[in-house]
Each structure stands twice: as structure tokens, then as C-alpha cells.
């Protein structure tokens, strides 16, 4: 019989199994039970399609905003060693660990009628609370930092010598960003954006507080599942399964890309 490696003791296996079960069992339950009942009807109902479309479109829009503005931010954060930049890094990461209820209240305190920007938005005749824009803003707020962190790690891993060589040739910062840093980090950036999209797709608590749960306008998939739970649990299970599969797909893509990124020089 092949001897066990010291790190592979039965005790360690047993302890690991406990957590694996807690993490995996609920998903197995969802997969085995989500297809029961009238799954096809649940999936093809107008309310589902509407919520699915809303979830996908707002997540895509949020992702676009995050990538366009988050990529330069991550690059700048990765290139500076100043103390205030480190503090800024912590600050922009904060929303990731913020309780969803706190995020909701924070967004309401900023964009709500009596919020920080309330008078300005009122003057511009813009109403964000309980609108589709609120879903996008919430996604940017809670999922954006995931992208920024991924992009920051990627940019920080670029060999400094490459950048120095480019500068010695006379390349300006913007050219180095576009032609060296961006293409070098492309797989990692895509991987980070997939993670960000998956997080945006699953956003629930802050969205409920800031955007509400209005069918057709702000009712995203997680909110529809929440609503369905109250009347038809089987339907909620089927919808959850759909969201699980979507998230799994995004995660798998993200992982495979980041593996590829590590293998390349």
C-alpha cells in the first residue's frame, strides 16, 4: 500500500470533509431538487425572463463602469508606494466586507432624497432611488472592489524592469499603460471582471434597500427568488438553480483564465 504523505493524515481529511460538506451539500440539494415540480414553467414565465434580463443587463452595465474606471485606478494604485495610496487601497476595498444592510443605508444616505447628493440630483431632476440605475450603482459599489483588487494584483505583478525599459525608450505613462501593462494583464483582468460580474449578479440586500423590489423595474433574479419563496418554494428552488449555474459558469471561466495567466511568463 502506498504510504500517506505527512500532510495527508486521516484526521486532516476528516476535518476538511466537515467544511466541504457544509459548502457543497446545499448546492447538491439545489441541483437535485431544483429540477423537480414545474421547472420549465417557472423558468419561462414572463416574470422570470424579465428579472433575468434585468439582472444580466444591470450586471453588464455595472461591469462596464467598473472596468472603464477601475482599470486606470488599479493601475495607479499598483504603481505608487505612497502612504496615502495604501490608505486609499484600503478605503476602496471596504465595500467588500461591508454588511449589505450597511451598504444599502450608505447608498441611501448618498443618493437618497435627503442624502449627500440629494439636492444636486433633485436640481438635475434625477431620481436614483428605486430606479434601475440604483441596481447598477449598488452593483458597482459592492462588486467593483473585487475587480479593483484582482486588477491591482495583476498590475503589481508586472516586472518593474519591463516598465523601466519602456521608460528608457522614451515611452510616456499612457503608452506604457495601453501597450504594455494592459495586454500583459489581459487574462487576469478578464478573470477579475468575471468574478465581479458573478458578485453583481448575486447582489441582494443592498439592492433591496436602495432599489426596492419592483417587478419589471428593480426586481432582479435574487429579489424574484426572495418574492417566490413566500408563495411557491419549488419555484424559488428552480430559479436559484438557474442563478447557481450562471454563477458557477462565471467562476469556472474566471478560474481557468487565472490559471492560464499564471502559466504564461
Amino acid at each position: 500500500m502506498k504510504a500517506l504523505h505527512p500532510a495527508q493524515s486521516p484526521t486532516l481529511y476528516g476535518m476538511s470533509l466537515v467544511l466541504v460538506l457544509v459548502l457543497v451539500l446545499p448546492m447538491i440539494a439545489l441541483i437535485t431538487q431544483g429540477l423537480g415540480g414545474d421547472a420549465l414553467r417557472a423558468l419561462s414565465s414572463p416574470a422570470t425572463l424579465q428579472a433575468l434580463w434585468l439582472s444580466l443587463s444591470t450586471s453588464a452595465l455595472a461591469l462596464l463602469v467598473v472596468v472603464v474606471f477601475g482599470t486606470p485606478l488599479s493601475y495607479l494604485l499598483s504603481r505608487s508606494k505612497a502612504r496615502w495610496v495604501e490608505n486609499l487601497q484600503t478605503l476602496v476595498q471596504l465595500p467588500v466586507v461591508l454588511p449589505p444592510a450597511v451598504a444599502g443605508v450608505a447608498l441611501l444616505s448618498t443618493f437618497g432624497q435627503k442624502g449627500l447628493l440629494g439636492p444636486l440630483l433633485h436640481a438635475m431632476e434625477l431620481r436614483i432611488v428605486f430606479s434601475t440605475a440604483a441596481i447598477v450603482l449598488t452593483s458597482v459599489f459592492v462588486a467593483g472592489p473585487l475587480y479593483v483588487q484582482g486588477a491591482l494584483n495583476a498590475f503589481s505583478s508586472i516586472d518593474e524592469e519591463l516598465l523601466l525599459v519602456a521608460r528608457s525608450m522614451g515611452a510616456k505613462s499612457l503608452r506604457i499603460f495601453w501597450q504594455i501593462a494592459l495586454p500583459l494583464c489581459r487574462p487576469a483582468l478578464i478573470s477579475a471582471s468575471l468574478l465581479c460580474a458573478a458578485r453583481a449578479l448575486g447582489e441582494f440586500g443592498a439592492t433591496l434597500m436602495f432599489a426596492g423590489n419592483l417587478p419589471g423595474r428593480t426586481q432582479t433574479m435574487p429579489l424574484l427568488i426572495y418574492t417566490a419563496m413566500e408563495s411557491d418554494f419549488a419555484r424559488a428552488r428552480t430559479l436559484s438553480l438557474l442563478l447557481l449555474l450562471l454563477s458557477a459558469l462565471l467562476l469556472a471561466l474566471s478560474f481557468s483564465l487565472s490559471r492560464k495567466w499564471r502559466v504564461q511568463p
Partner: peptide, 16 residues
């Protein structure tokens, strides 16, 4: 650096 006009070849050649 970008204004100094010095050609620089680092240890590992620094090819992109």
C-alpha cells in the same frame, strides 16, 4: 527617465 535618451538592457533583457 523617458527624457534621458539612455539605452538600457537589464539582466533578463526586459523583452515584452
Amino acid at each position: 527617465t523617458e527624457q534621458r535618451r539612455l539605452g538600457y538592457v537589464p539582466q533578463s533583457y526586459g523583452l515584452f
